Computed example of a mutant assay.
Amino acid sequence: MGARPAAFEKQPPRRFSREWFLNGLRTGGWVAVITLLVWVYADIHFTEGRSIRVTLRIHTDSTDNMVALNPTAPLALQLEVKGRRHAIEQFAGAKLSYDAAKELPPGLHAEVSIVELLEELPEVRKAGLEILSTRPKAVDIHLDTLETIAGVPVRFERSGGEATDIKFTPERVNLLVPTSRLSEINRQKLELPTETVDLRDRAVGEQLSKRVRVQVPEVLGCRLSPEFVDVTFTVGQQLGKPKEFTVTIRVQTPREWLTDDTWSQYKFEAQDPLVWTRKITVRGDRMDLEGLRPEEINAYIILTQDSKRQTEGWWPGKVHVQLPRGLKVQADPVDDVGYRLVKRSGGGP
């Protein structure tokens, strides 16, 4: 057969025409689809090993009669993993949680492989990752059962003011203590304080109701039930911020020493003259503290006939602090000062 007439041959579309653009879109669309399929296939089947970081919290939240004494804080783990690239990227930085109460026996105290522990987590299985290694390699887990100390009294803690007519609901709480730590609890003097409530800006006589948290003893693994109590009370005396006053400690002697020969036979020596000027902290009613002046504070030690006894070293002088009458304030205890009475040469037998 001869060549087809030129009239029957399909001519390419004119450049930049509508048909030219449509042909380009058809070709480009197929290329994009094929490229996407190649990338999806590569992500599904391509595996790689990478180092990532995650955190792991070991807990016993699913039960009320067991506690994890160790570890008490989330673990920072570095993992070498193998799996799909996308899955690894999604898993990196994960905050994982392991319920030891469901998986481990009560009373366990042993080192557990972190690889074995992680492989039990649904997040790891769902990601399809293989844990090659971890750092650290193992974790020391200590599980303990909890013993209940029922009916522990609560103490209302406040600052800036006093409170009266204090009532708690419930009146007492239950303290759950790990069996291995029971010896650290003094049951004879057990009383749990609440969080501190600030009463500085409250009016005297005002009746208030608060929901406050009860403080857990500083014994590892302790819990409370309930953790909060409701307290109602009446605001009493307003307390000011404690104030410090610099005063000089004086010496008080028996009256007869003023007329007998005591001071002709003895002389008074201070162990360290500098400590006889002290900073004394005074606490109490806000208005009384604001009006109190240093010269109104009388700090002194008392000498007696026993002070004349010949002894080696120094006598400890107990410091007494006297504040003006009628003020609702009190001073903190002051450390003793050292002194002695030394016989003068030629001062008698």
Rank of each mutant, 00 (worst) to 15 (best):
160 G>C: 04
174 N>R: 11
177 V>W: 04
146 L>H: 02
197 V>I: 14
168 F>G: 00
171 E>A: 15
169 T>R: 12
167 K>H: 14
176 L>I: 09
154 V>F: 06
198 D>G: 01
158 R>N: 11
168 F>R: 07
171 E>W: 07
190 L>A: 03
190 L>P: 03
147 E>L: 10
149 I>D: 00
189 K>Q: 14
178 P>L: 03
171 E>P: 01
179 T>C: 03
164 T>A: 12
166 I>D: 06
165 D>G: 04
188 Q>G: 03
172 R>W: 06
148 T>M: 12
189 K>F: 12
157 E>W: 08
154 V>W: 05
163 A>Y: 11
191 E>N: 09
194 T>N: 07
153 P>G: 09
170 P>M: 12
164 T>D: 14
156 F>K: 05
170 P>A: 11
190 L>T: 03
160 G>K: 07
172 R>F: 14
181 R>N: 08
172 R>A: 10
181 R>D: 01
168 F>N: 06
184 E>N: 00
197 V>K: 03
191 E>F: 01
165 D>K: 15
180 S>H: 05
184 E>Y: 02
157 E>R: 14
182 L>H: 03
150 A>E: 15
180 S>Q: 10
191 E>V: 13
183 S>L: 08
192 L>G: 04
188 Q>H: 09
167 K>R: 15
187 R>C: 00
188 Q>M: 11
178 P>N: 09
146 L>I: 07
197 V>D: 05
169 T>A: 14
157 E>I: 00
156 F>C: 00
163 A>T: 09
193 P>G: 04
183 S>I: 09
178 P>A: 04
178 P>W: 05
171 E>L: 11
188 Q>P: 00
149 I>F: 11
164 T>I: 10
178 P>G: 00
153 P>Y: 12
198 D>T: 06
172 R>E: 14
192 L>Y: 08
193 P>C: 04
158 R>C: 05
149 I>K: 05
174 N>I: 07
149 I>N: 02
146 L>M: 15
153 P>D: 13
177 V>D: 03
150 A>T: 15
195 E>Y: 08
184 E>G: 01
192 L>T: 06
180 S>C: 07
181 R>E: 10
164 T>E: 15
152 V>W: 10
183 S>H: 14
149 I>A: 01
196 T>W: 08
159 S>G: 08
174 N>A: 15
196 T>K: 13
171 E>I: 07
180 S>F: 03
196 T>S: 11
185 I>W: 02
175 L>P: 03
163 A>K: 08
183 S>G: 07
180 S>A: 12
179 T>G: 12
173 V>R: 02
157 E>N: 11
161 G>K: 04
168 F>V: 09
192 L>V: 06
146 L>N: 02
173 V>N: 04
172 R>D: 06
164 T>P: 01
183 S>A: 15
176 L>E: 14
152 V>T: 10
186 N>R: 12
156 F>Y: 12
148 T>A: 14
166 I>Y: 09
188 Q>E: 14
167 K>D: 12
182 L>G: 01
175 L>H: 05
180 S>W: 00
153 P>A: 13
153 P>C: 12
152 V>E: 08
175 L>F: 07
186 N>H: 07
179 T>S: 14
190 L>Q: 06
157 E>Q: 13
190 L>R: 05
153 P>E: 14
163 A>G: 04
166 I>W: 10
173 V>W: 06
171 E>Q: 14
189 K>W: 11
195 E>K: 13
159 S>Y: 00
153 P>I: 11
